[in-house]
Nucleic acid binder design. Structure first.
Lengths: 140, 140
DNA sequence: CTACTATTGATAATGTTTTTCAATTATAGG
DNA sequence: CCTATAATTGAAAAACATTATCAATAGTAG
């Protein structure tokens, strides 16, 4: 069985990268987390699998994974350090206020809104960023 | 003429705060900026009006203004340190990729999208955050 | 004008992220 | 399997950003 971890590591390898214990541990933690994690949280969790892991390697691995668009930084009121597996294509983020669980959903059509804004402001719209929060089924 | 700076300082005063040169300088800079500014940018600009201003006072003033909801932190790819005058009610942000100019626009009706997401995910939707970027009329 | 107390600026402390560098180790090719 | 090469590692130090401490200053109410 090819896990998502394997898939990510394969992608790393195919872009001139090497598959190391440090990276395997970091990737494993992120892949199996239902919620965004900060570098230190990743470090703490990954250290259980790879005892000698250094925090610096976590930062470096995150940088690489972000370049490969396998993970994304998550911006929240309480901070913008956490990372989550990235969505495919143009997906948006839904976060539970209680447990932090993240769900990615496909973007709806916001074209009519954008054309109105474009008209009103004279801007040429290039990109947008939508994030929704609430309470998940388990936390209700 | 009552400027927006005066209005902000008045609001400060009405919540047990004092109107000082340091705050006047910081507020002036933010109020008259068309784009989000970082603490250091605010510091540099405000120092021209108030020579003895300390960076720490900028941070403290920003904290107060954010509490009063007169300013808001702006999250961008390049960082999340910048602040901008806040919108009234539920407005969203439109940013120019070139010059950084910010425009606030009234939120459209996203209810149908939310009810669909709610149905699909079991979440109870509480809040959302929409930010749009593009190229403004002057930069096109 | 005075008393009170919020605010200030300087300094130090804290926390996060990046840089440096010698040692290690994954990988391709023999 | 062995070797050469170059990417990666972990530790320490450096660079940044933000917050706490504290005595001195200055707004404000009376």
């Amino acid at each position: 069985m090819v896990t998502r971890t394997d898939h990510w590591l394969e992608k790393l390898k195919s872009t001139d990268g090497r598959v190391t214990d440090a990276r395997r541990a970091v990737v494993d933690v992120i892949v199996s987390s239902p919620r965004p994690l900060t570098p230190v949280e990743i470090f703490d969790a990954a250290r259980k699998k790879h005892l000698h892991l250094g925090l610096v390697s976590v930062y470096r691995t995150l940088e690489k994974l972000e370049e490969l668009r396998l993970i994304q930084r998550v911006h929240q009121e309480q901070g913008c350090q956490a990372f989550l597996r990235a969505g495919v294509g143009h997906q948006h983020l839904l976060l539970c206020e209680r447990c932090g669980q993240a769900v990615l959903f496909d973007g709806d059509d916001l074209e009519s809104l954008f054309s109105r804004i474009s008209q009103q402001t004279g801007f040429e719209i290039k990109d947008h960023w939508l994030q929704v929060s609430g309470v998940c089924a388990e936390c209700k």
